[in-house]
Amino acid sequence: MTIRLVLFIVAIYAMFSASAEAEDRPKPSRIGMLLPGSEASSGYLKGLYQGLVEQGLIEGKNISLERRYANGRIDQLPALAAELAASGVNLIFTSGDQAAKAAKQATDRIPIIAVTCDALAAGLVSNLSRPGGNLTGVTCINADLDGKRVELIKEILPSISRLVVMLNPDDQRSVAEFKQIELAAKASSIELLRQSVLKPEEIVPAFSQAASAGATGAIVIYDPMFFLRRRELNEIAVSKGIATVFNFREFVEAGGLMSYGPNVQDMCRQSARLIKKALSSESAGETPMEQPTRFELVINLGTAKKIGLVVPSALIGRADEVIE
């Protein structure tokens, strides 16, 4: 047998061995990501990526991530969800109540792992311990947090008599949050003004009307449109001299006054364990929804200075983070 023939046989053997090995290797699980914001606004997903690595789920190795961004256009979520479902992904990850609702409408078969503001208030599930259907994830219960936000605005503005609440009136969870804020405001003898905001161009008029009505504080209920335009929103609030309180720290990092709520990066990281369970054929509907493990108060002293507020030292002492 010539050397050339031997080398040819070795090459053929190696080719078939490599082919057989490739066929035996499991295909990466395809994870669809349905995201209401933009790529630039989704820094909180760092927590998810970290959590996936910790669970041994490596992008490009045993999982692939297929991202769909609505860029603040909530009306685009159903079409994006349907597109992901039709593409044959093994699992859908969503952030936000509206994205989770769109995913549920698109499929009752593909497991959905959702990070949400309040899955109960949004009507996504009726029971946290046994969600049923094909959805589970990590959610906070905002009814437990809204009263605290009213307390915070009262602490920083002891003489406040009028408080504006800005929300998306078409979002079921936002309306539920408003009712909780309404109860807390009534208990503190604060008159509540409701401002419905559906489009970016309505933000300036909403703050102008609030300022004209004598509102000195605002609670802005989380919505993807607000989140995507959080810097612009805060600039307008500061220009009107209105103190703002938000659900999440990202708003304060973008110039808001205060936030009280869970850390979204932590929630995303926490959800990675549920993703691994679902990919291991554990039923999402039988997997209890989890709640955040950490809540934080963040205060922006630079913003307080701009609107002429002195933040009480006791409040600063309780803050988890103070932005100078």
Rank of each mutant, 00 (worst) to 15 (best):
A102S: 12
G51V: 00
L297D: 02
K199F: 14
R294K: 12
R318K: 13
S41E: 15
R273G: 14
V238L: 09
Q291S: 12
L135S: 07
R318C: 04
L157A: 06
A176L: 11
P26Y: 08
P158R: 00
A210W: 09
N127Y: 14
K306H: 10
N134W: 11
I58S: 01
A210E: 09
S19A: 13
F226I: 05
R231V: 13
D170G: 05
S271W: 04
V197D: 06
Q105I: 08
Y44F: 10
F295N: 07
S188E: 15
E182V: 10
S280K: 12
I12E: 10
A20F: 12
V165M: 02
E151Y: 03
A86G: 00
G256P: 12
K27H: 05
T107H: 11
A22M: 09
L34F: 02
T136D: 06
E23S: 05
E250S: 05
A14R: 03
A187H: 13
A176E: 09
K199R: 04
V53W: 02
Q172D: 13
T287P: 09
V10L: 15
G214M: 08
Q55I: 01
V220F: 05
L145F: 06
S188F: 11
S19N: 14
L228C: 10
S159T: 03
N247Y: 03
V252A: 03
A102Q: 10
I316W: 06
V115Y: 00
L274Q: 04
I113A: 09
P169T: 08
S313R: 04
R294H: 11
L84I: 08
A82E: 14
V89M: 02
A86N: 15
P205K: 05
K101P: 03
F248L: 13
A210G: 09
D266P: 03
G37H: 13
Q76I: 03
I3E: 14
C268E: 04
I31E: 04
G88P: 07
L309I: 09
L274N: 06
L198W: 03
D75T: 01
